[in-house]
């Protein structure tokens, strides 16, 4: 996954400024930074939920298609987990996970369901398969959302602040799933405020501020020895309590 000179504006606001980022297969990149720094926007541009004004984004050497069937195909290769879960409210947990494989990958129902049950068991919500999203806790819903994304067998997983909408006691169950994914070699881009997760699971930490990538380093280097003033200031505010 390569982002090359990516720029984006919202009106006068230059939300992404000349973003260059390369993510290798199996790499776990954690994007951190203050609110409004453009990190969520960056995450959303990667599967084109947000358009970009200039620059290129390539997956496996191929540029993202602008629209239509090609774009849908690309999105199937890029799993996405949202801050607000976004499980399909009118479908059961099992249907949420089987929908993509059946409609996009054209799997048979039985096949898709067997696969989905495995994934749900893996994230620890197998017993809830027949329920509807609203009947589950936030942490359970987010784990289902991860299973739904994994069911497409994506090459890359994007996490857009996956724990920000959760009660504190549910954060761990979601992070545990993400850590195990990272250990299995999934390529991941994670926008988060969970510094513990960044330290433990990230291969690289990217620090963003004001629409720019300010620093990009290993977690140990970044947290113990930040180079820029902006990063020092940010870490000082969140770590010293």
């Amino acid at each position: 996954m390569v982002l090359d000179h990516v720029d984006k504006h919202y009106g006068d606001l230059h939300v992404l400024q000349d973003i260059n980022l390369e993510i290798k297969r199996g790499e776990v990149v954690v994007v951190i930074g203050p609110s409004g720094s453009g990190k969520s926007t960056l995450c959303r541009t990667i599967n084109r939920l947000e358009t970009i004004d200039s620059g290129t984004i390539k997956l496996d050497g191929k540029e993202l298609p602008a629209e239509g069937k090609g774009l849908a195909k690309l999105r199937a290769e890029v799993g996405m987990v949202f801050q607000s879960f976004n499980l399909f409210a009118h479908k059961t947990i099992l249907q949420n996970v089987t929908l993509g494989p059946m409609k996009v990958r054209k799997l048979k129902k039985a096949e898709a369901e067997a696969e989905a049950k495995k994934l749900l068991d893996r994230v620890g919500v197998g017993a809830q398969a027949a329920k509807y999203p609203a009947q589950l806790s936030g942490g359970q819903q987010q784990r289902v959302a991860i299973a739904r994304a994994l069911a497409m067998k994506p090459q890359v997983m994007l996490f857009d602040e996956p724990t920000s909408a959760l009660d504190p006691e549910m954060v761990k169950e979601v992070l545990d799933v993400m850590v195990s994914l990272a250990k299995e070699g999934m390529t991941m881009i994670v926008v988060t405020h969970e510094m513990g997760f960044a330290r433990m699971a990230a291969d690289r930490v990217v620090f963003m501020a004001d629409g720019q990538i300010v620093e990009s380093n290993t977690p140990a280097e970044f947290f113990d020895n930040p180079q820029s003033e902006r990063a020092k200031d940010f870490l000082g505010k969140i770590l010293k309590h």
Binding site: L49, A72, R75, A76, N86, F88, A89, V104
Partner: peptide, 26 residues
């Protein structure tokens, strides 16, 4: 909610699938 359509797009549904399977039923 917009998130429903975004999630549908994110798993690779086309516009018509998204409308038929996710947005219109709701």
């Amino acid at each position: 909610p917009l998130g429903q359509a975004e999630a549908a797009r994110a798993i690779g549904l086309t516009f018509t699938q998204n409308l038929r399977l996710i947005v219109l039923p709701q």
